[in-house]
């Protein structure tokens, strides 16, 4: 075969098949934003160092800036535009909205996609770097604030919305009662997190 630096790929994006020509250099991120008009996925660093471009690829969260579009041929992509159920927001989206889990909003689609996957990873029993005992016999650690923080650390938020993000993920994961979440006082925090 002669070298070819471009080609056509077919992706299933948010349940819909798209065939599009791409330069081999095109990342999935740029294909979404510049070819398909799906600009909900954000470009923050273009180097895998911020998480703003997080999408779900075959159901798993990935950074789309380091995923070549041509190498995603045939795979299923879910972007922020595809996580709601019609007009009904995904519980993670709703929790981010209600609890003000963002400020400028630029990292938000990536945070939300990441959170959706993080909740599923936890439900599947995946340990994290802060899981004290990773042996399978130890069981799944509860999704504490510390676990959420670690699991969401691949998504930088320069506005510093982390506190509300953790609360939103906790609420969406059903680990906290739904409804308005009051910021607990220091004593309650200390108790909840086993500090002090």
């Amino acid at each position: 075969m002669p070298p070819s630096t471009a080609g056509a790929i077919t992706l299933t994006i948010n349940g819909e098949k798209h065939t599009l020509p791409v330069d081999n250099r095109t990342t999935l991120l740029d294909a979404l934003r510049e070819r398909l008009g799906l600009t909900g996925t954000k470009k923050g660093c273009d180097q895998g160092q911020c998480g703003a471009c997080t999408v779900l690829l075959d159901g798993r969260r990935v950074v789309s800036c380091l995923q070549l579009a041509v190498a995603a041929e045939g795979r299923e992509v879910t972007t922020i535009e595809g996580v709601a159920d019609g007009d009904r927001l995904h519980p993670v989206q709703q929790a981010f909205l209600d609890l003000d889990g963002f400020q400028c909003g630029y990292c938000t689609p990536g945070q939300i996609c990441s959170a959706i996957a993080a909740i599923e990873e936890h439900a599947a029993g995946w340990p994290s770097a802060v899981t004290t005992d990773v042996r399978p016999e130890a069981g799944v650690p509860p999704l504490t604030a510390e676990e959420i923080r670690e699991r969401m650390s691949g998504n930088l938020c320069r506005c510093g919305a982390y506190v509300s993000i953790v609360q939103a993920v906790a609420r969406a994961a059903g680990e906290r009662p739904a409804g308005p979440v009051e910021l607990p006082g220091a004593a309650a925090v200390a108790q909840a997190e086993g500090v002090a």
Binding site: T39, G40, T79, I80, E81, F96, L97, D100, G105, P109
Partner: peptide, 15 residues
């Protein structure tokens, strides 16, 4: 909650 919040959590907000 932010008046543009829904646009921001759905990716509809255009930067």
């Amino acid at each position: 909650t932010r008046v543009e919040g829904r646009d921001k959590v759905t990716g509809a907000a255009r930067y």
